[in-house]
């Protein structure tokens, strides 16, 4: 929801980044305010996944220029774990499997890391159990999931729902969903989207990165940005996503080239 006087959560200015010496981001500008849902669309290799990893602080991605301000502080100075503790959440395209570590323990460690940062008392296993059970409904997960090893043997849909469960617990100010829709059947997609919609409020913001317009039928964005060659080349509303679905990306690329 776009509101005039909302806080600026994220302000990205002329951001450039490389991976393995290859220049991937070539000057990204983006401003995200509280309450807003932004979608970033683009073809494979456009830089959209790189952008999400740079925001979350992946060490393989080197920022070479520009700035990222998050709630008024320099985001690029923070370690990935500190970004998380300060309210940035990245839902992964390929969540990690961790055999031998129960989902419940993992969620509690992550949850308590954030509480500690906020100067709050850590929750013991008993209290946490109660909290996590409330959140399970959001992603329609069975309590049995909690006792299984993190993501081990989970189906694609289960893994993504587990990501959204983590998001529900960590209550981020800025949630970045990196191709959360890829590989999901329509029921799983709906569940994930409903989870995200439940969690979206006036204080937080969502950055939804996707290849397909399909997800945006369920998570309605306030802004749609199109990324190509490491830059945002067009910003519009959800109608832009519809147009991309119909016409593909080529016409935009042609216009972009013509403009240059």
């Amino acid at each position: 929801m776009i509101r005039e006087n909302s806080d600026v959560i994220l302000s990205v200015k002329d951001l450039t980044a490389t991976v393995d010496g290859n220049s991937i981001l070539k000057g990204v500008d983006l401003e995200v305010k509280a309450g807003e849902i932004h979608a970033i669309m683009g073809l494979n290799g456009s830089g959209k996944s790189t952008f999400s990893k740079v925001l979350a602080g992946h060490p393989d991605y080197k920022v070479t220029g520009g700035s990222v301000s998050y709630l008024g502080q320099d985001l690029l100075e923070l370690e990935p774990e500190d970004r998380s503790r300060n309210g940035i959440f990245l839902a992964f395209q390929y969540p990690l499997e961790i055999p031998g570590v129960s989902n419940l323990d993992f969620l509690r460690v992550a949850y308590n890391a954030k509480r500690k940062q906020a100067g709050e008392e850590e929750l013991d296993a008993f209290d946490f159990d109660e909290l996590v059970r409330e959140k399970l409904d959001i992603v329609k997960m069975d309590a049995a999931f909690l006792n299984r090893s993190v993501n081990e043997g989970f189906s694609g849909g289960e893994k993504k729902r587990n990501e959204i469960l983590q998001m529900a617990l960590l209550e981020p100010r800025l949630a970045i969903l990196d191709e959360t829709d890829s590989g999901l059947d329509i029921d799983a997609l709906k569940t994930v989207a409903e989870g995200v919609n439940t969690l979206a409020n006036a204080d937080n913001a969502m950055l939804v990165i996707t290849h397909y317009q399909r997800l945006l039928n369920y998570i309605v964005p306030d802004y749609v940005h199109v990324m190509a060659n490491g830059r945002i080349i067009r910003t519009g509303t959800k109608e832009l996503a519809m147009e991309l679905e119909e016409r593909g990306y080529d016409w935009l690329m042609v216009e972009e080239t013509a403009a240059v």
């Binding site: 979350a56 370690e79 774990e81 969540p95």
Partner: peptide, 28 residues
Amino acid sequence: ADEVFYLQSRGIDSDSARKLLIYAFAYE
């Protein structure tokens, strides 16, 4: 690096993340 990063992105510092991954490897 991707594995350590996943855990860091959940607020777990890199030392603890490494320990957790070694644990998972040995646990099997």
